[in-house]
Design a protein around this nucleic acid. Structure first.
Lengths: 351, 351
DNA sequence: GTGAAAGCGCTAACAC
DNA sequence: GTGTTAGCGCTTTCAC
């Protein structure tokens, strides 16, 4: 029972007939204690069910072993799911490494920076994970300038900076190779015999979207089909997906659609269904999405899956090496992880 | 710049020419300090950009102002979204109340209980929020027995206990009135003139599912239509939704489907579309879902929205009253929140 | 290898 | 109203 008071270092020390310091050593530098003493101390620890008070330790060492993460704004899109899965994986990986994840919210980037200061000053958070970086992000800059350990899920997309500096560009990050993802999806369709593979993407200018576009284009180029391509760009929503696909399907030679997201793919699927109803007997148009969200699984949509577990593991690793101050030369500070294609009904030969 | 060392109470005290204690008082019991002194201290605080070290405070007061939440296992279903939205709202509300949310993971209930002990003993977490309670939950029991502040999102569905005890039954909880939700959805359909409103639900025995079923039934009973009802029960997936709806639509008098979840509604929608294609000219069958997930918005599905923001606010409130030890008689320790119906295309009169 | 002393930054208890 | 003293539980430093 945890009533009364918990045992402290002193309790354990008395119990094992050693000094508090020795108990501390057993916990933190076991190799420095003689085996039999260590044994005795460990027994006392077990008997008393002693657990070190991390708050006291934190006060002394100035290390909290806590990571901060801004709770990403509730995404209305379907793809928001990826971040949630990432958050889960991150919590898991952090815990495995003896770290905790603490959440906070902020209205905008500036508020977030203020919260960094706050959290550092008051609770001594050790580092941050940023999940939603964007072009010209002031947050990475601030963190780098202030020597705060952090890692981003997502590459910094702007390589140029007004003042010609490069600080922000060199921060540690982990990202998923979207280009490889759409490339694999496109290749998969080409392998199935499709020749006219259209791309339904986001408006130009988003790093992530452009990256995915590039993968599709590269695959077509590899097959010598890049001279005359079909692309339609639109905002990320199911309704827009319907509209975009309907437009593209007006071209009768298009037999497959590579979509930049599951949301758009979901819309495309509806359009394809409509299209098929009007032309019975014709081979169904293949569709692929991106993110492998629950919806994709639900409607049996082929999609590119982001291995968020791997991302989280590498992120924690990168963070730890910064926090512990070891300049891990062996550790790549920029990690690009390959996604994989999950083939489902919407891209398989139908009938 | 935060380099060098941050100011402490002592720094501020010297700066304001008072004792450390007075500074502490200004922060924690301002009314006890003379106005002019307080003014001077506040000025010093502002000038030095002093922020109290919460770790030190925590060591002293044994209060962490941190709430623990087990990261719910990545739900493959579409409805998992509700928890994510809740988590966001909780973080927000907690922050507003000066609390932080810390995450952890656990394999199962027992592991979670072990983690409670751990977190309490080592980091002194003040309380917990449980998001996924289930019948016969050992966690609420453990927490109650050990006097740990907590609140659940979800009612305890089992009112009986082996030993006849009632501890677990009296814990503070916040929940959404699912019954009221389906009742509103059903009434909405009845008002639109539908007479045969079928229910697509989960297998009997889940508290949440039975609750939603009850609301539908109550609405029909209120209209004198409960004598001969159409119900189909199935697992929560889109595919199952398709199958269930197809079965139910074999009865030609069914003109509306109230679904226990958006997943099932999504499937039902597909079945309805198929059905309509075979019977042109017939009035489309109305469909409603539950949870108002992004997918519902995406496909324009009428759905019952869970006001998770309200839930989070009340949860934080209940937790605070426990942590601060005030036995708030005025505060209902069991809060049922009314959801609201979001009417969209799938339940509006078509054409 | 082990122990004693000091102190991290704060607040509770009591003196003035 | 304000200041002084003590101590939360731990680790770092330095004797031994």
């Amino acid at each position: 029972m945890a009533d009364g008071s918990r045992p402290t270092l002193t309790t354990v020390a008395e119990h094992a007939r050693v000094s508090r310091q020795t108990v501390s050593n057993v916990l933190n530098s076991p190799e420095v204690v003689r085996p039999d003493t260590r044994e005795r101390v460990l027994r006392a620890i077990a008997e008393l069910d002693y657990r070190p008070n991390v708050v006291a330790r934190q006060l002394r060492t100035r290390r909290s072993s806590v990571l901060g993460l801004r709770m990403p704004p509730a995404s209305d899109g379907i793809s928001g799911q990826v971040l949630d899965r990432f958050l889960h994986a991150l919590t898991d990986e952090a815990q495995r490494a003896g770290l905790r994840v603490m959440l906070f919210t902020a209205e905008d980037d500036d508020a977030e920076i203020r919260e960094y200061q706050n959290l550092r000053a008051t609770t001594g958070i050790d580092g941050f994970v940023l999940a939603n970086t964007h072009a010209g992000d002031p947050r990475t800059r601030w963190l780098a300038d202030h020597g705060v350990p952090f890692v981003t899920f997502g590459r910094p997309w702007d390589t140029r900076r007004d003042d010609g500096g490069t600080t922000a560009d060199h921060h540690p990050w982990v990202d998923i190779d979207g280009r490889a993802g759409t490339r694999a999806a496109t290749q998969h369709l080409l392998d199935a015999g499709h020749r006219r593979v259209a791309f339904l993407g986001w408006p130009e200018g988003s790093g992530v979207g452009d990256d995915r576009f590039a993968g599709w284009h590269a695959a077509l180029a590899g097959a010598g089909l890049a001279d005359d391509v079909v692309v339609h760009r639109t905002a990320d929503s199911v309704a827009q997906g319907v509209a975009a696909a309907t437009r593209v399907l007006a071209r009768d030679d298009v037999t497959a659609l590579v979509c930049v997201s599951d949301s758009i793919a979901l819309g495309a699927l509806a359009a394809v269904r409509e299209h098929a109803a009007q032309r019975p007997g014709r081979r169904a148009v293949a569709v692929t999405g991106f993110d492998d969200t629950p919806v994709a699984r639900a409607v049996d949509l082929t999609s590119v899956a982001q291995p968020v577990g791997d991302v989280a593991a590498r992120a924690v690793e990168l963070l730890r090496s910064q926090i512990e101050g070891r300049d891990d030369v062996a550790l790549d500070r920029q990690v690009l992880i390959e996604p994989h294609l999950v083939v489902r009904a919407t891209s398989r030969a139908v009938r």
